[in-house]
Every structure is written in C-alpha cells, then in structure tokens.
Design a protein around this nucleic acid. Sequence first.
DNA 1: TCTGGGGTCCTAGGACCC
DNA 2: TCTGGGGTCCTAGGACCC
Length: 386
Amino acid sequence: MERQRIILHVDMDAFFAAIEQRDDPSLVGRPVIVGGPGARGVVSTASYEARPFGVHSAMPMAEARRRCPEAVVRPGRLRLYAAVSAELMEELARFTPLLEPLSLDEAFLDMTGSEGLFGEPPEMARAIKDAVQARTRLSCSVGIAANKFLAKLASDLDKPDGITLVPFGREAAFIAPLPLSKLWGVGPAATTELQRLGYRTIGQIAAADLSALEGQLGGRFARHLHALACAHDDRQVVSGRRRKSVGAEMTLERDVQGRAAVEQVLGRQCRRVAQQLRRNDLLAAGLRVKIRFSRGFRTRSRQMDLPTPADDSRSLIDAAGELLDRFELDEPIRLVGAAAFKLLPAAAAGQLDLFEGKQQAARSELEHTVDRIRDRFGDKIEYGER
DNA sequence: TCTGGGGTCCTAGGACCC
DNA sequence: TCTGGGGTCCTAGGACCC
C-alpha cells in the first residue's frame, strides 16, 4: 500500500488577462480579452469581467466581440507571460523540489511530508497563495488532494482565488456526482461517446463493470478512466521534464495556394523554430511540416529525420522543402507550420567532422551571433534566406 | 462567426529483425 | 507452395490540455 500523498495543484486565475490588468490599471475591473485580434483569431483568455457575457477560451474573436462589445481586446504578449511564469515557478520551487509545471500558469507540487514546515494542507495552500501574490501580484486557485487528478479537479471548483481540499478518505464519494467532463482527459469526443453509452456522471463510470467498459471503449482507455472515476491515480509528480518538440505555426489571414506561397511562410516558421532551438541550447534530429487545408479543415503532416542534428535555419528549411514535395498543394491552405522533434542538448552534439557538418556548424555559429545582436538591439534586424 | 498556437500522449499499420 | 510470432521503430492522424 502506498503512503498517503499530499498533492497540490496551483492554477493562475485568467493568467494572460490578469497580467494585462496588472500592468495597465485602466483595465482593472473591465472586461479584457487576450487573443488573436484578426478575422481568424480566437480567445486565449477572458478576464472574469468578460466571462458573464459568455466569452470563454477558444471562442472565435468575432463572436467574443459580438457578445461583449465593450471588452478591451489585447493580442497577447507571450514573451512577457513566459517571464512571469518563470517567476511563478521559481516561487513555487521554494515550497518543494517536487514541482511539475503543466503549462505557463499551472503546476503540481508534491508536498507529502512537509507538514512540519508548512502546517496542514490548507495552511500550505494559503502560504503558497500569499507567496504567489507577493511575488507576481496575481491570484491563483489551489486544489489539494491525495493525487494529481483530484488536485487538478479541485483547483477548478472554486475559482478565482479559491482553495479546495478533496477530503482524504472520502474522495470517490466527493467526485461521484460530478459530470463526466470533469475527468481529466475526457474531452468533447469522449463525452459524446460516453453519453451515447448512457453515462452521465463520474459515479456511473466508477460503478460500471470494468470488463464491459473495456469492451465499449478499448482496454487501456477504459482502465484509465475507471481508475480516475474511482479516484485512483498513482501518477507521480515529476520535476525536470524535458520538452519533446519545438514548433511554430500560423493560420494565415487569407488562404494561400501553390508551392511558392507555402514555401515562403514555411521558411519563416523554420527560422522561428531554429531560433527557439538555439535559445534553449537544443539540436533537432527530426522535422515535421504541417498543413491545414481550408476545405474541410483537414490537417496533414509529413515528417523526417534530419541528416545531422541541427539548430540552423538552412538545415530546417532544406528538410522542410523535401517534406513539402510529399504534399498535394493544389488547393487553398489556411495554416502552415513546422515543428522540430528528437531534441538533444546542444552540448551533447557529436563532433561534426564531415564537410557538411562544418558548413552547418558555421551557419549555426553565425545565427547564434545574430541572436545575440537581436537580444541586445531588438528584433528589427532581419537575417536569413528571403 | 466557423474553428489559435503551444504542446503531450495514444493508436494503428507497416517495416524490419530474429 | 500459402505461411509464426514477438519486439521495436517509424509514420500519420487524432484527442486532449491550457
């Protein structure tokens, strides 16, 4: 039997919008929407003032503006949000080394055995909220429970600025009345399927016969879901996870068609990806190109291994060109993206002794230099194949 | 008013090897 | 001369998360 754990899930309240309000006092108390402002933009975050109008994440921006015409729309400043996130994580790390960031604005903390230092779980949560507020001038909500799933579910139950504890020993009864969609990993598709099978609540899944569920959903997913519904989740809080891919994609304001137009956008994405790789001291050994067609909103991708692990634009652009040969491009395209995978630390790169490797190393070196100049003087400097 | 951008994980089929 | 079985890797697509 595993010992009782104390897991906390910290979730910032309307993170992006809250940062905008924090940094511009004229926005305090007003509906603020962060997201893509263009015709094809969607809402990334809506402040709590905007939510009563029915504005929520992933909603098309045009619809959001219609529902809440007085809202202030901001395009989003990801670099700033990432910097605030780094401060947040640094602050949370003061409470435990067992810290697992889930996204810019969320993290799990395993506080098992920390009662001596921080008191009972609700006191831990209070201390964390105070520390986060002091450091970032932002509020968060905290869920406390015996495992990750329950802690994450709990943090969402009393938002914003709440603390929710799932009573230890009474977990299954606590979550039984909640709707299926609260199960972490059950989205629109699974909800539809489960409802079709007659399930409505978490408790009904927990009470279901497991072998029947396996027959209906497929073994692995069924067992996972059933365990969660029974409030079981033995996944550990893992610190120091490594990113597995680095991507850049863009939905175009207007569709494009034909190889030349796609190539131009793809080149830009490859340069962004290469820059991200260098910024993070990573090399990529694989590249994937993604195309979304307007007709039917179909997404297609092609991937390959690179001849040599790389962080320079030219290597990525060359590979992307090869991958592009494997698409049919004779219809309108709305999104073009590139993503690097099979990432390895740049320090671990083998010696590239071949001529090809030396050329590539020289390009990488040059682009690193350009990065440094950009960091000092801003992004106005253009470099690269046009 | 159609549907962002950054990711993670899972699955299914085929190649390949023993 | 009608055909194995397991393991692993790769590819592509899709669900899901914030």
